Computed example of a mutant assay.
Amino acid sequence: MTALKAVIRIDRFISNATSLSRSQVQRVIRAGRVRVDGVQIKKASLPVRLDAEVYLDESMVAPPLPRYFMLNKPIGVVSAAHDPSQRTVLDLFDVPKRTGLHIAGRLDIDSSGLVLVTDDGQWSHRITAPSNHCPKSYAVTLAEPLTAGQISKLETGLLLKGETKPTKPATVEQLSALELRLTITEGRYHQVKRMFAALGNHVEGLHRLSIGGLLLDQSLLPGEYRPLTPREVGLF
């Protein structure tokens, strides 16, 4: 589905495209100051297409452009929009309308690497939906070396604690005795750490290198981010 066929709430449409907050937009909508495709509306939750003709009073509101970022998440930052005690991924972003952004592909607080952030829900769904089997690659540092038999189990699938269905086959590239590159196509809860725990091992370090065909920009220092290019957005 293309961006222009997507729909969002009218209050979010106007808030994302102007300097008005969501609550301010809701007030002007209730006051009857908004028209969509020539029709006055008073319902803030009304879904509208991104190519709809929206007017606030006599001024046309240009459709909000979706935003796409990659972040090199540092260790110690929570993959969440809000947290009462921890610094979050969104706290790292100095952009307008930050509250409209969400995370597509979370990482544990003690893990680092590529995180995607957007306000395009359909785009992020293509990345995170389990049925799409989007591959993700990680640099993994282990407490103990793997045996050939353990690598074989990773490559064929193994049963995680508390589950009845084995993992899908992973790709393993041994980099050194304690370091490897692991690629998986699932997103189960703490999956990488649980896979190695099932082998009696422990993950000492976890850094995400890629999601799908998108590689983490090596020029980004921990905590830095940049917008995705149109080519990168089109990978999903």
Results as ranks from 00 to 15, higher is better:
R9N: 13
R12N: 14
F13P: 05
F13K: 08
I14H: 13
S15N: 03
N16A: 15
N16T: 01
N16Y: 04
T18Q: 13
T18S: 14
T18G: 13
T18L: 15
S19N: 05
L20F: 14
L20H: 14
L20P: 03
S21Y: 12
S21M: 13
S23D: 12
Q24L: 07
V25M: 11
Q26E: 13
V28T: 08
V28K: 00
I29D: 05
I29G: 07
I29Y: 11
A31P: 05
A31G: 13
R33C: 10
V34F: 08
R35T: 15
V36A: 08
V36L: 15
V36P: 09
D37K: 11
G38T: 12
V39G: 01
V39K: 06
V39I: 15
Q40R: 10
K42N: 13
K42I: 10
A44C: 02
S45D: 14
L46H: 00
P47L: 04
V48K: 02
V48P: 08
R49S: 12
R49Q: 10
D51P: 01
A52M: 00
V54N: 00
V54H: 08
Y55W: 12
D57F: 11
D57P: 00
E58H: 12
S59Q: 15
S59L: 11
M60Y: 01
V61G: 01
V61R: 07
A62L: 09
A62R: 15
P63R: 07
P63Y: 14
P64V: 00
L65Q: 15
L65W: 01
L65N: 05
P66Y: 12
P66A: 07
P66L: 12
R67L: 06
Y68W: 08
F69M: 11
M70N: 11
M70C: 13
L71H: 11
N72L: 06
P74H: 10
G76Y: 15
G76H: 10
V77H: 10
V77T: 08
S79A: 14
S79D: 12
A80L: 06
A81T: 09
H82S: 15
D83W: 06
D83V: 03
P84C: 07
S85G: 05
Q86K: 07
R87T: 06
R87Q: 15
R87F: 03
R87C: 08
T88G: 02
V89G: 13
V89H: 05
V89W: 04
L90V: 01
D91L: 08
L92D: 09
F93G: 09
P96Y: 05
K97H: 14
R98Q: 02
T99G: 02
T99R: 10
G100R: 02
G100L: 00
G100E: 07
L101Q: 00
L101C: 04
H102V: 02
H102A: 04
I103C: 14
A104Y: 10
G105K: 01
R106E: 04
D108W: 05
D108G: 11
D108C: 11
I109E: 11
D110C: 02
D110G: 07
D110H: 12
D110R: 03
S111F: 07
S111C: 03
G113D: 03
V115R: 02
L116A: 01
L116S: 03
L116M: 05
L116K: 01
T118K: 04
D120V: 01
G121W: 01
G121V: 00
G121F: 00
S124N: 04
